[in-house]
Simulated assay, not measured.
Amino acid sequence: MPDTITKLTYQTFQQSKIYFALAHKRISTQLRNFIHPNLKLNTKSLSAEILQKMQQRIDKIIEKDLADGEKGIYPVNIIFDNPWADFFSYYPNVWLDMPSVWEKIQQKKYQEFSQEIDTQDYPNYYKISIIKQMDT
């Protein structure tokens, strides 16, 4: 078992990424509701039971990562290697792209791609809308 400090540090590191993602989702949803109040997405809240199962699975992944590092499958320090500078340099683009994403949702243009994007290797579920699939 990895030493306690490494384990606690890694758990905290991973949990902070989850909390960051949840905060992003919450803020972006509030912003979307403000800008596009009529844009309703067909989503459901997750039950406490599902959230608990998800957390248990995340905890198991974290434990496995640490155990694999300790077994020498890869160095333990590699699980802390994240390109934060890259992340923070690209993250503003996520926010800047949101209005166009919301517009595509509103217009039901889920599978439309820019001409510059080569979708040849994309899975079909990325390229074919459910409506198109039902028509065939």
Rank of each mutant, 00 (worst) to 15 (best):
I79F: 11
R32D: 02
F34I: 10
Y74A: 03
K7D: 05
W84Q: 04
F80P: 02
K64Y: 03
S47R: 12
L66M: 07
S45F: 12
G69S: 00
S16H: 11
S47G: 12
K108M: 04
L51K: 15
S16K: 01
Q106K: 13
Q14S: 09
F88L: 11
G69A: 06
H24G: 09
N77M: 04
D68R: 06
Q30K: 09
P37Q: 07
E112M: 03
V76D: 04
F34K: 13
E103I: 00
D97A: 10
L8K: 15
Q15K: 09
P83A: 15
I62R: 00
L8E: 12
S89F: 08
T9P: 00
W95L: 14
V94E: 01
Q52R: 15
E112A: 00
Q115P: 09
F80G: 06
S89K: 08
L8I: 08
Q111F: 11
Q120Y: 14
T12S: 15
Q107P: 01
A48N: 14
N42I: 05
I61G: 01
D81E: 07
E103K: 05
P92H: 10
I18G: 07
K108R: 10
F13V: 04
A67S: 07
S47T: 12
A67E: 07
L41Q: 09
F87W: 12
K108L: 03
L8T: 04
T9V: 10
D86C: 06
I105P: 01
Y10W: 12
Q55C: 08
A21R: 09
A67I: 03
T43K: 14
N33R: 15
I35G: 04
K17R: 09
N93M: 14
I18F: 12
Q30F: 14
T43G: 05
E63V: 00
L96S: 11
Q115D: 09
F34S: 07
A23L: 10
N124V: 02
F20A: 04
H36E: 05
Y110E: 00
G72K: 08
F13S: 12
F88S: 03
T4G: 14
E103L: 06
Q56V: 04
Y110M: 07
S114L: 07
E63R: 05
E112Y: 00
Q115M: 05
A21L: 10
Q56H: 02
K64E: 12
E49D: 01
D81F: 12
L51A: 08
F13L: 13
D81Q: 13
K60H: 07
F87N: 09
H24A: 07
I35K: 12
E116Y: 05
A48K: 15
M54Y: 10
I73M: 14
Y110C: 00
A48M: 13
L8D: 15
H36Y: 15
Q55N: 14
Y10V: 08
K71V: 04
S16V: 06
I50Q: 08
F34A: 10
K44N: 04
Q120I: 05
H24R: 10
A21V: 06
T29A: 08
A48V: 13
T9I: 01
I50K: 13
K104R: 05
Y91F: 15
K108T: 03
S47C: 09
D59W: 03
E103R: 03
H36D: 06
S16A: 11
T29N: 13
P99V: 02
